[in-house]
Design a protein around this nucleic acid. Structure first.
Length: 167
DNA sequence: CGGATTTGACCAGCGC
DNA sequence: GCGCTGGTCAAATCCG
């Protein structure tokens, strides 16, 4: 884990879920390509007046790296969205490979991997026990292949979500 | 029948 | 070193 960004949407709209149902990952992929920031600060969190939180955390690189190429820093981007369902069909195909209960949340965290060969993008979905309407989706890596689904309403999501960047 | 999910085991990092 | 915790594996199972 190197650094990740937590992005909070603004007020959820009534049509928010339906729009999220198709094109969220495209948004994430786009963000990942845009947010190529690599500040080396340990932890920086900013709270905007309307309650949105952006957090960027640098957890440091593993000291013991094999042959020095395996532990490349892979940026992670975490989104916190309001959704009724954990699985947001975002246009990519994800294969679930694990589920684990984390300590502070009573809801388990699910681990997904992109099914496209050679595309090692991972994501984890976690629901907050404090506010079970909030789902945190953490993306790791970037897709090396085009999206599978059409995503014509991708712009709407961008308008719905407030995106905060650290640099 | 093929691909996705489930689920316990396994493992690695970290703090004590 | 040991145990806790989070991340991954993989065999069994499910489902279209």
């Amino acid at each position: 884990m190197d650094n990740y960004a937590m992005l909070f949407p603004t007020q959820p709209s009534s049509s928010y879920h339906s729009m999220l149902s198709n094109t969220t990952t495209q948004l994430f992929a786009n963000l990942s390509s845009n947010m190529t920031c690599s500040n080396n600060s340990n932890t920086s969190a900013t709270k905007s007046p309307n309650g949105l939180i952006f957090e960027s955390k640098e957890l440091g690189e593993k000291a013991s790296k094999k042959k020095g190429e395996k532990k490349v820093r892979r940026p992670r981007y975490a989104f916190q969205t309001r959704s009724q369902v954990d699985i947001l069909d975002d246009g990519y195909r994800w294969r679930k490979y694990g589920q684990k209960a984390v300590k502070n949340n009573k809801f388990p965290r699910s681990y997904y991997r992109c099914t496209h060969q050679g595309c090692n993008v991972k994501k984890q979905v976690q629901r907050l026990s404090k506010d079970e309407a909030v789902v945190v989706t953490t993306y790791e890596g970037m897709h090396t292949h085009p999206i599978e689904k059409s995503n014509d309403n991708f712009e709407h999501i961008l308008n719905q979500m407030q995106i905060y960047r650290s640099c």
